[in-house]
Design a protein around this nucleic acid. Structure first.
Length: 439
RNA sequence: GGCCCUAUCGUCUAACGGUUAGGACAUCAGGUUUUCAUCCUGGAAAUCGGAGUUCGAUUCUCCGUAGGGUCACCA
């Protein structure tokens, strides 16, 4: 089998988004799996819309995800090559200069001499597809000698780079026929085509850059989505491994990927599943990796010491890093940092019990705490041992609910053993006393 | 509108023509040492419609219908 060469060819006219990423992924997987070459090409022939910052954004996104490429070039650096090929086409009678009618200044454009034939190509995903190229007419392939257009540059670059597989979005499917026409005129070998289904936005249509649910790839990084999680998620849209595995690393995907398991139909991407996948990947991180990850999202108010105590809790509760910030702003961690303000004492009452019951149980727990050692507050488990027998005896909810509410002042929180172990003996006693005094 | 492509739970998907149509996310119910979360168990939830072919169609064919893509001196 000859060398596998794939490429992605984004135009830097906007931030690199997830549609482009999915295409990149399939090209990357396929190249790596076959020990081939993966090329990144910046299609910046549209000088008006192309911006350096977008090219950088794409490269940054690919680097973040660990999708290393074997070659990079941009079309604006290759004008000489294109001129050479335009001349070749004109000389061979496949293209000609034409006075322009629709233009502003009536300049000359280069048109391709359309042979008006049926073009059939085999798509690795869709099967055989035939187009009648007649309606294309003699289409324009360059604004002038120095300004080639997309269809021309694609063919020349793919040809010169010896791209073996053109894996791209289905929005390019109707472009294929005219590109084949140019390609044959230039004498390049026809690559194999694989048009992958589009990713649809929630509404059902093609994702547009204005869609609020579609973020640039770099934005997922800011949210705290892990590179492998995003890769995992995007890979699974429109492709499946053929078994029921769901969680993959990038390397596993390189092994598992196969073009014939790629779906034919477009699919809607649903961000909930991304969060779930991210959480699954988070669970696989070591403590050291977790520290680096969480550190980026921790509010200053959460000290190093506190962080270490609640690390396991974060893994349990957080799907993606940015959530920590949201949780913090909603007051989720406040009770670890400062004493809660108990404004509504009636909330301390558990179900059918009374305020008197709560008072009695809290007093008893206070007693237990007073008798306890500092070491009894070291872990969730040790605090539990301290009060568990009593709670079992008189009713768990009757003891635990008032205790939890006393320690946190919130309707929802982790269990009181955990909270007590985080804040320690002194503060636990303090909070119980404070509530008892106001009862 | 022309051309091209597609069609299984809400979403992502599985099912060499023969399965009680499977899994995951989401959702609902119950449980796991009080609430929330985690975890476990269970439930509800789909083959777009109509003709064929066949002993038998989710699966093959055709026709509808619906959705998407594309029709630039953008890529």
């Amino acid at each position: 089998m000859s060398k596998i060469v794939t490429r992605i060819a984004p135009s830097p006219t906007g931030k690199f988004h997830i549609g482009g990423l999915r295409t990149a992924l399939y090209n990357y997987f396929f190249a790596r799996q076959n020990e081939g070459v993966f090329i990144v090409r910046s299609e910046d022939t549209d000088k008006e819309r192309s911006k350096k910052e977008f090219e950088e954004n794409m490269l940054e996104a690919l680097a973040w995800l660990g999708l290393e490429h074997d070659a990079f070039y941009r079309q604006s650096d290759r004008t000489d090559i294109y001129i050479e090929h335009i001349n070749k086409l004109i000389l061979s009678g496949h293209a000609y200069e034409a006075e322009e009618s629709s233009g502003d200044e009536g300049g000359k454009v280069i048109r391709f001499k359309n042979p008006n034939i049926d073009v059939t190509f085999h798509d690795l995903i869709l099967g055989d597809i035939t187009f009648n190229t007649e309606e294309l007419g003699d289409f324009v392939i360059a604004r002038n000698m120095n300004s080639p257009l997309y269809h021309l540059t694609v063919v020349i670059d793919d040809g010169l780079s010896e791209v073996s597989h053109v894996i791209r979005g289905q929005d390019h499917i109707s472009n294929t026929a005219r590109q084949i026409l140019i390609l044959e005129a230039l004498g390049f070998t026809r690559p194999l085509y694989a048009h992958i289904p589009l990713i649809l936005s929630e509404g059902g249509g093609k994702m547009s850059k204005r869609d609020p649910s579609v973020y640039p790839v770099t934005e997922y990084r800011e949210m705290g989505i892990l590179p492998d999680a995003l890769i995992n998620f995007m890979a699974m849209i429109g492709w499946n491994p053929g078994d029921e595995r769901e969680i993959f690393t990038k390397e596993e995907l390189v092994q598992a990927f196969s073009l014939d398991k790629v779906q034919k139909k477009g699919s809607v991407y649903n961000i909930q599943k991304l969060f779930w996948i991210n959480k699954e990947h988070l669970k696989k991180l070591s403590d050291g990796e977790l520290d680096i990850y969480f550190k980026k999202f921790l509010p200053q108010e959460i000290s190093e010491e506190l962080y270490l105590k609640i690390r396991t809790l974060l893994v349990e509760r957080v799907s993606y890093g940015k959530e920590i910030v949201d949780m913090y702003q909603a007051g989720e961690f406040s009770y670890y940092i400062e004493n809660p303000k108990i404004t509504d004492l009636s909330k301390i009452i558990w179900k059918q019990s009374t305020l008197e019951d709560a008072k009695k149980h809290l007093s008893h727990v206070l007693e237990l705490c007073n008798k306890a050692e500092d070491s009894d507050f070291e872990t969730e488990e040790s605090v539990k041992n301290l009060v568990w027998d009593y709670a079992e005896e008189v009713g768990k909810g009757d003891v635990l609910w008032p205790l939890r509410y006393t320690l946190t002042g919130q309707d929802k929180s982790p269990n009181p053993f955990f909270v007590a172990s985080v804040i320690g003996k002194e503060k636990t006693i303090q909070r119980i006393q404070s509530v008892l005094e106001s009862l």
